[in-house]
């Protein structure tokens, strides 16, 4: 009887520690994936820039880098597609929209907890730059809004060259399921064509 009362709390402590470690691990894994993947993607992007060919960042990847986006101090490599798996590694480019350099509305989505956490700090004064195979594109922010997840109008094609960044909102929320999206729209200011002719 006595041994039982002693063991029970111990078991609880061990279980709790175990669950805690598991969850911490899982949480860290999400961040680690987001950071490490960007290193690997950097190599793939360098290869893409020099060869002009699509280069998956690792052999079994079902995506490839399409551009590099700079937000204030940080820059990230954009991957093709916006599936959950892709977004875990980097911000994704919605494939149904054009890439910068082609007329229309370029839509990019990223996780609010990792790569696109910085969107919150962006203001109308900030410029965004996107580098693609075609060259470097500088955008000026013209609209910041919070929309519902079903409001697809932000992805609609535009007559002016537009860049649309999407991430989940609110930024500091714990829940991974929010129906709100933080949307930044920017319009093309400057275009530097790639001189290397790739």
């Amino acid at each position: 009887m006595k041994s039982l009362t002693v063991n029970k709390p111990k078991a609880i402590v061990i279980t709790c520690c175990f669950i805690s470690a598991l969850l911490f691990g899982s949480s860290m894994y999400i961040h680690a994936k987001a950071i490490v993947a960007q290193w690997l993607i950097e190599n793939a992007w360098t290869a893409t820039l020099s060869t002009g060919k699509q280069q998956p960042p690792w052999s079994w990847a079902d995506t490839y880098p399409v551009a590099k986006i700079s937000l204030k101090s940080h820059s990230y490599y954009l991957l093709a597609g916006i599936t959950g798996r892709t977004l875990a590694f980097g911000p994704g480019h919605m494939s149904s929209t054009p890439l910068p350099g082609k007329a229309g509305n370029t839509v990019i989505a990223g996780h609010r907890d990792t790569h696109f956490a910085q969107l919150e700090q962006l203001t109308f004064e900030d410029n965004l730059t996107v580098e693609t195979l075609k060259g470097q594109f500088t955008y000026q922010i013209i609209d910041i809004s919070i929309v519902h997840e079903k409001d697809m109008s932000v992805t609609a094609s535009t007559s002016n060259d537009t860049l649309t960044l999407i991430t989940c909102y609110p930024f500091d929320s714990l829940s991974p399921d929010t129906q709100w999206r933080y949307v930044i729209q920017a319009t093309l200011q400057k275009r530097d064509n790639n001189q290397s002719g790739v």
């Binding site: 669950i19 805690s20 470690a21 598991l22 969850l23 911490f24 899982s26 949480s27 999400i30 961040h31 916006i82 959950g84 977004l87 875990a88 994704g92 919605m94 989505a109 990223g110 996780h111 609010r112 907890d113 990792t114 696109f116 929309v147 997840e149 079903k150 409001d151 697809m152 932000v154 992805t155 999407i166 991430t167 989940c168 929320s173 714990l174 829940s175 991974p176 399921d177 929010t178 999206r181």
Partner: peptide, 17 residues
């Protein structure tokens, strides 16, 4: 039509941990 899901449970997991 739905905008992409762009949040991870990372913070939540950390908090529960």
């Amino acid at each position: 039509g739905m905008l992409p899901q762009t949040a991870t449970p990372a913070s939540l997991q950390a908090l529960i941990a």
